[in-house]
């Protein structure tokens, strides 16, 4: 995934940048699968395939290259400083972080997730606990997600329409 990110940043052709982005997406879906989140993995794979196909189609038609220019030293220095600072910060932070894969219930006795997992089947009747959290305990989040998609469609309608747009010459 890191290699894909670097290729996407530094390649000259737009098409290979898009394909590298796809590689990052598939890598993250593999990570979701390893962390035992099949719901997320399914979503990631499907969305990734559609996005990849459409982006490839768009770049094939235009045949564009990435916006090149003179490489300046100052942005690299600033970015390097930020990354270095974050690295030093994370070295101290990660020592206090719990081990990856250990659940919240092991460290905190009355964590809310324990209640969801124990009572979820009785209260909602759903075998898939992800769905019982998404659509029952935390349905407000899903409402917000639905609003985001609705707004995306509205934005597409507004930005891409022809009639109703002001003439640029006048």
């Amino acid at each position: 995934m890191l290699i894909g990110a670097f290729v996407a940043l530094y390649t000259d052709e737009l098409l290979s940048a898009v394909i590298a982005l796809g590689a990052i997406g598939f890598g993250s879906s593999g990570i979701f699968l390893l962390l035992r989140a099949p719901d997320l993995a399914i979503t990631q794979v499907v969305v990734e395939v559609i996005t990849l196909v459409l982006l490839i189609r768009a770049t094939m038609v235009i045949g564009a290259h990435t916006a090149g220019g003179k490489k300046q030293l100052l942005p690299y220095l600033v970015a390097g400083g930020i990354v270095g600072g974050l690295f030093i910060f994370s070295v101290f932070t990660l020592q206090n972080m719990p081990e990856i894969g250990s659940s919240v219930m092991d460290r905190i006795d009355d964590a809310p997730s324990l209640y969801y997992l124990l009572q979820g089947l009785d209260l909602t009747g759903s075998t898939n606990q992800v769905m019982s959290v998404l659509l029952d305990f935390r349905a407000y989040d899903t409402l917000g997600e639905a609003t985001v998609i609705f707004t995306a469609v509205l934005g597409g309608l507004t930005l891409l329409r022809k009639n109703g747009r002001a003439e640029p010459n006048e």
Binding site: D39, T43, N128, S132, L134
Partner: peptide
């Protein structure tokens, strides 16, 4: 079958849209 097995409304809807795409 989103409430019985992995899946649900969002991935299922995207897959249905994928058949039209």
């Amino acid at each position: 079958y989103g409430h019985l097995s992995p899946g649900g409304g969002f991935p299922g809807g995207v897959i249905i849209a994928a058949s039209f795409i």
